[in-house]
Design a protein around this nucleic acid. Structure first.
Length: 581
DNA sequence: GCCGTTTTCGGCCCGACTGTTTTCAGTCG
């Protein structure tokens, strides 16, 4: 059983217990455990085999025993029994805004409502209106939400959410500029999670009404869901909910901290506050006894009060950042300014949209020291992969361009097919002549785990392969990763010095933050690349950097933060030592 | 159900908003 499945079961138990009316502390215990496992890059099966389940925070005696049973038998008697008491079909109702555990329980027990269709019927024939606490307004809202439920998308990729937020902020500044003292994105967008639920914007102003009026009147607003004195919610172009919250200037820092989250990170801070006799909310940090305000106007001040350095939003997941901060051990995260070049790009020679010259010019505009040209290799027919002859032709063009001695150095490379049978697309003697080799999987996605893992491990073991490209093959929201033991791959790469790519394309972000952090911890090299197929794709690098930051990646472990001489030395050393560099 | 330099028992984050209440329950983030 994969970690995701275990997480699903734990969350379902939490939801079912909540509907059942169980105390929220027990409910939260299951959700906490699920969240902790989400942040765990290791395979739970290995953790269990080594008797380390109890070392996972939030996993105590009872949950450890349940995990053990689930992993060993694929089933959990407790869960099965729970489902006979509370039907699992009720869980979808939790997705309907306005419906929580108490109302769902009421609907189920008095009306026998077990799902969306039951709910719609009971709304239409008036039975819901007979329930206590269900007035005309509630019925109207529920009817609307049930209709909206059908067309509601799931979380959006960061790559579509962030541009919307940025465009809205730009327009808002045009229309309400003088009233806006500070403005920033908040929530998971600011933390740069790979997918985003609701989009959040925060503004500091003395004239909230003016800002909110301008916001609900923006052209991309499809529908206004709520419009109060300090907050408004709208539906954006693709039906995403966008919330704007306006706070007074002296609460800016506290509000930004509060609305950036994550929830788990905030809960930790508020617990720390309580232990110190303080109270933390979106208006500020207060001494409980005297109500004296200790901090609130700027974010760093809040953290400073706890003896913490300012914690970058990308780290705020309660995955060790608070402990690290207290100990003065927060990492120096990789930044855009650390990056010296890109090691994965394409031209019209395979499936890119621009010439080598144009790609080189774009890299020069970025101020890069080097650019690796890595067109696809021959087997990838759909992408016009390079034959050996065309690769040789490319070599001459690249050599000629490098003769100029100006701008970024072009490195001749290839994005090498890891073929379905596990073999590589070019022989070793050809690979040996290239500056850089990115090996990737583009075929046989449905192969079983052991076979897929063997393919990738074999590639990583080849001393000429420098980088494993988009190692899990996922396309966010469209295609799951192929079934590969990423842990095993990371383990091999940590020994061979083969870098793992963090592909910056917002549809990929692959490795993801959780696995990249694991790779960091085990001492792997990483390459933060754009996989650019056009000049403006180099602009996607910030997505990869954000993912790396979420993985606690420091610049000294990023291959393309090395200067050209250091990069060359590193690559040469790896070849000479047979990949043990 | 978890957890512990104030505790192995008794705690476990905080406030706003909505709709329905006549003082509050439920939901949300």
């Amino acid at each position: 059983m994969r970690n995701e499945e275990v997480i699903r079961v734990l969350n379902a138990i939490g939801d079912l217990l909540e509907i059942k009316g169980e105390t929220r502390f027990r409910v939260n215990a299951y959700r906490d455990a699920a969240r902790q496992i989400e942040g765990l890059a290791e395979d739970l099966n290995s953790v269990a085999a080594e008797g380390r389940l109890r070392t996972i925070p939030g996993v105590g005696e009872a949950i450890a025993a349940k995990l053990q049973e689930l992993l060993e038998t694929g089933k959990l008697a407790y869960f099965e029994r729970l489902k006979t008491e509370v039907p699992e079909t009720l869980l979808v109702l939790l997705q309907v805004p306005g419906l929580g555990p108490r109302k769902i329980k009421l609907l189920y027990e008095t009306l026998g409502v077990k799902g969306i269709d039951d709910l719609r019927a009971a709304l239409v024939d008036g039975r819901v209106a007979t329930l206590p606490g269900m007035g005309a307004k509630s019925i109207e809202n529920l009817k609307r939400e049930v209709e909206r439920y059908e067309q509601r998308g799931s979380r959006s990729p960061l790559g579509s959410a962030l541009p919307i937020v940025q465009e809205m902020m730009a327009l808002l500044r045009e229309r309400a500029g003088p009233a806006i003292l500070q403005m920033e994105e908040a929530g998971s967008v600011r933390r740069r999670r790979d997918t985003i639920g609701d989009l959040d914007i925060l503004v500091a102003s003395d004239d909230a009404a003016r800002v909110l009026d301008a916001f609900v009147g923006l052209p991309m607003v499809q529908e206004v869901i709520g419009h109060g004195d300090t907050k408004a919610s709208v539906l954006g172009p693709r039906g995403q909910q966008i919330d704007l919250r306006v706070v007074p200037p002296d609460s800016w820092g506290a509000a930004l901290q509060y609305f950036t989250g994550s929830k788990a990170h905030n809960v930790r801070l508020r617990e720390m506050a309580v232990r110190k006799g303080w109270r933390l909310n979106e208006y500020g940090l207060y001494e409980s006894a005297s109500d004296r305000k200790l901090a609130g106007s700027d974010e760093a001040g809040i953290y400073a009060a706890f003896g913490l350095p300012w914690i970058p939003p990308t780290l705020r997941e309660d995955n060790g950042e608070i402990e690290a901060g207290l100990a003065g051990r927060l990492p120096r995260l990789v930044q855009a300014t650390d990056m010296r070049g890109d090691l994965h790009s394409h031209s019209t020679w395979s499936d890119g949209q621009a010439s080598i010259e144009e790609m080189w010019a774009a890299a020069r505009a970025k101020g890069y020291e080097y650019l690796a040209l890595t067109d696809h290799s021959q087997s990838l027919g759909v992408a016009n992969g390079l034959s050996l002859d065309r690769l040789r032709e490319q070599r001459e063009i690249v050599a000629a361009m490098n003769q100029r001695g100006e701008g970024p150095r072009l490195l001749l490379g290839v994005e090498l097919e890891i073929r379905a049978d596990g073999s590589l697309d070019f022989p070793d003697e050809v690979l040996a002549e290239l500056d850089i080799v990115v090996a990737s999987v583009h075929s046989g996605f449905s192969q079983p785990r052991d076979k897929m893992t063997a393919r990738l491990v074999a590639a990583a073991l080849n001393p000429h392969v420098d980088i494993i490209g988009h190692p899990t093959g996922r396309l966010i929201g469209r295609r799951d990763s192929y079934d590969v033991d990423v842990d095993a791959l990371i383990d091999v790469c940590s020994r061979t010095g083969t870098a793992l790519e963090i592909n910056s394309h917002p549809a990929r972000l692959d490795l993801d933050d959780v696995h990249a952090r694991r790779a960091m911890e085990l001492g792997c090299w990483l390459a933060i690349d754009t996989d650019a197929h056009a000049p403006d794709h180099f602009d996607l690098l910030p997505y990869g950097i954000a993912t790396a930051q979420r993985a606690w990646v420091t610049p000294e472990r990023v291959l393309n933060s090395l200067s050209l001489p250091d990069l060359r030395a590193h690559l040469d050393a790896r070849c000479q030592t047979g990949g043990r560099g």
